[in-house]
Design a protein around this nucleic acid. Structure first.
Lengths: 218, 218
DNA sequence: TCCTCGTCAAGAGCACTGCTCTCGATCCGT
DNA sequence: ACGGATCGAGAGCAGTGCTCTTGACGAGGA
């Protein structure tokens, strides 16, 4: 009998709890996520799940980390090195938007209102930057640093060090614009305002591509 | 004795409830806002406040409306018709940012994650647009419609009808950018990324001003 | 082989929440 | 002066997060 039998069982119920929690998050939203109800659904009593998660907050934190990873993975997978710079850029933007539409509650969890008194745990920090890194990768490969406007130097030197310094500020602006646009659409601010949201989004992506110095064309 | 004595008393406790609710919202966040605890603080029993608000959701809705009004008012008050176009633009952007920093929880309430199953009540819709209207007012007064890039026509015709059609899409983009940037800063995404947030914000505002066709200079 | 130790699920319980219902008291217009 | 509407209080229900204790089970050491 493998010595890790008990450890594997533990990992399995741990997964079951996380999965059920994510299901409830998607179905009812973060506010309605109840530890007791995931316990019920998973076939345990509520006190038993406390052997696996320390608190409701910790459960949410795990979901946050998983969400950051998932959206980062979606972005990384969407980039196709064989395509033209702007096609790559657009593909990544679209992938982020598509992921957000498929997982609105998770998206809200990571890019929505943070809970006060809830310091973002350190384990979320690296995961949060993955989409930005993908975007930066396209810029360093195909961007023309001479083609960007003049921006003040207001970004830390150790952020995206692979990027030429004049490009890093517009890159941060573009990164902000991506999530700002997705969030506004997802949270309903474009209701009764923007008609063709696909075309609108692509147009914003294209303008952002120009602002970071990607060449015109494909 | 004025005939409206009882009505005035009602209005007063109504105000007291709202005020206490806003205090708790600011202090503990929306998730921790409890009807029972505002009742306690206001000196009533919980069932009594149900004579004034139908539910916790309705309490939140009233706070949302008040927040939209407050941020709209801040934006309107910041515009100084005597100043130059870009100075007006910058002043409005800064006022929105300042209001958000002073009222982070309220900002999160209106521009953060919406509660699922919670349809934005109709009374919030007009209030939500006020900042956009202020921005549009500056553009119609001083913008050069010929100075904006080519954008697809993807915005409803009855939105910001005072704006020349080619300008309306970049105006929506700028509006998105304002709240996207404020939100990213407020929700901590710029932590360890942007150093001088004031300068960064002003630079974004200026770039947005250019994109909607405001003339260079003051 | 037996026996102990650590792990786990279960149950009871506490303090809290939103919300409903009923019951007196009070106020207002007729 | 009275009758109806209005209002506050209290009890109560179902649900929550979280803690503590109790009992069962399996794995490793004597």
């Amino acid at each position: 009998m493998p010595p890790g039998a008990r450890a594997r069982a533990r990992a399995e119920t741990s997964r079951a709890i996380l999965d059920e929690a994510r299901r409830q998050l998607a179905r009812e939203g973060a506010a309605a996520l109840s530890l007791r109800s995931v316990a019920r659904e998973v076939g345990m009593v509520s006190s038993a799940v406390y052997r696996y998660v320390a608190s409701r907050d910790e459960l949410l934190t795990r979901l946050i980390v998983e969400a950051y990873d998932a959206i980062g993975e979606a972005a990384e997978g969407a980039r196709d090195d064989g395509a033209g710079p702007r096609a790559q850029w657009r593909a990544v933007w679209r992938a982020v938007r598509a992921w957000a539409h498929e997982h609105p509650a998770e998206y809200g969890l990571i890019y929505g209102t943070p809970v006060p008194g809830y310091a973002a745990p350190t384990e979320t920090i690296p995961a949060a930057g993955r989409v930005g890194v993908v975007l930066a990768g396209i810029v360093v490969a195909h961007g023309d640093p001479g083609a960007v406007g003049g921006w003040p130097s207001v970004v830390r030197d150790d952020v995206l060090p692979e990027l030429a310094r004049p490009v890093v500020v517009p890159a941060v602006v573009a990164w902000t614009q991506l999530f700002g646009t997705v969030g506004f659409e997802l949270f309903g601010q474009y209701e009764n305002v923007v008609t063709d949201r696909d075309a609108y989004f692509d147009a914003v992506a294209d303008a952002a591509a120009t602002s970071v110095g990607l060449p015109a064309g494909r």
